[in-house]
């Protein structure tokens, strides 16, 4: 698909419109509800545990840069972790294989600690670029867990086959680990080796749940409505295909979306 046709444009307008509408109504002060996401309540616990043991926290924001939305979602989570860490006075280490992400993660850390009123914590937190190779970065990160006596480890963002190198490495180092990714092929490995896992789409709902910030809450509610729309569309399509046969032009849903 090179350029959007009107069908895609319509879908885009519906999905984006629902999100923006809900953000608008949330900002006007409407109370919105989000169900608890199991993995996230554990963040406070993990930060607290780390403070008790005296080691820093480690955050890894995935293997991708900003062209991947999961990295955008990870930014919101790092902010929350920073704010929680500011309460306990923990410092944070961030590792990455992407040079372009070094200044961005630094910026997030500085801004979040400053917002939480502990700018000095940002000074002894650090972002480490380990290697441009993904696998070496994974091993380097697990090495860091041992060297720096990290006791809690957060893995949020996009992951590829290296996921298990991070999470099993953390397991060996004895860290408490919370992971979240929407790369579904990697979730079984996180499930097998992390304490809590934020699965697939939950990653995108995380920031909203954590901050209770109206914009994000509205966005999640809008996404839910979009999902409902898509679900109904699919059900209508299934009914259409059953009644009129798949590939039949009378099956309007199918012929509308096929291009």
């Amino acid at each position: 698909m090179d350029n959007a046709n009107w069908q895609v444009l319509l879908l885009m307008v519906v999905f984006a419109g629902l999100v923006l509408w809900k953000i608008g109504s949330a900002r006007k002060g409407r109370q919105l509800y989000i169900r608890p996401i199991p993995g996230l309540n554990a963040i406070e616990e993990a930060v607290g545990r780390s403070a008790e043991l005296g080691g820093p926290l480690l955050f890894h924001g995935g293997i991708a840069d900003f062209t991947n939305v999961q990295t955008l979602a990870a930014v919101g989570i790092l902010e929350h972790i920073c704010k929680t860490a500011a309460k306990y006075g923990n410092r944070i280490l961030v590792t990455t294989a992407m040079p372009v992400m070094v200044p961005i993660w630094e910026d997030v850390i500085k801004a979040s600690f400053a917002a939480a009123g502990r700018p000095e914590l940002a000074n002894w937190s650090e972002v480490r670029f380990i290697s441009p190779a993904g696998d070496l970065t994974a091993l380097g990160t697990t090495q860091l867990l041992v060297d720096e006596k990290v006791s809690s480890c957060f893995l949020f963002g996009a992951y590829d086959y290296t996921s298990l190198l991070y999470s099993e490495g953390g397991q060996i180092a004895g860290c408490m680990q919370i992971a979240g990714t929407s790369d579904y092929y990697q979730i079984p490995f996180f499930v097998a080796s992390c304490d809590y896992v934020v699965m697939v789409e939950e990653l995108f709902a995380c920031s909203a749940y954590l901050t209770r910030e109206p914009t994000m809450l509205g966005s999640v509610v809008g996404q839910d409505l979009g999902k409902l729309f898509l679900l109904l569309l699919i059900l209508a399509g299934v009914i259409g295909a059953t009644l009129f046969g798949s590939g039949n032009p009378l099956n309007v849903y199918e012929s509308l979306l096929r291009f």
């Binding site: 999905f15 984006a16 999100v19 923006l20 953000i23 939305v69 955008l72 979602a73 930014v75 919101g76 902010e79 910026d107 997030v108 801004a111 979040s112 400053a114 917002a115 929407s182 579904y184 697939v200 789409e201 990653l203 995108f204 709902a205 920031s207 901050t211 910030e213 914009t215 994000m216 966005s219 999640v220 809008g222 996404q223 979009g226 999902k227 898509l230």
Partner: peptide, 25 residues
Amino acid sequence: LIFGTMLGGIGTALRYWLNLEKGSA
């Protein structure tokens, strides 16, 4: 899972693009 990710992606991208994110960064 793909469909869920798509909608989550659209929401997140919209927030950052339109600078609706009220986060500190």
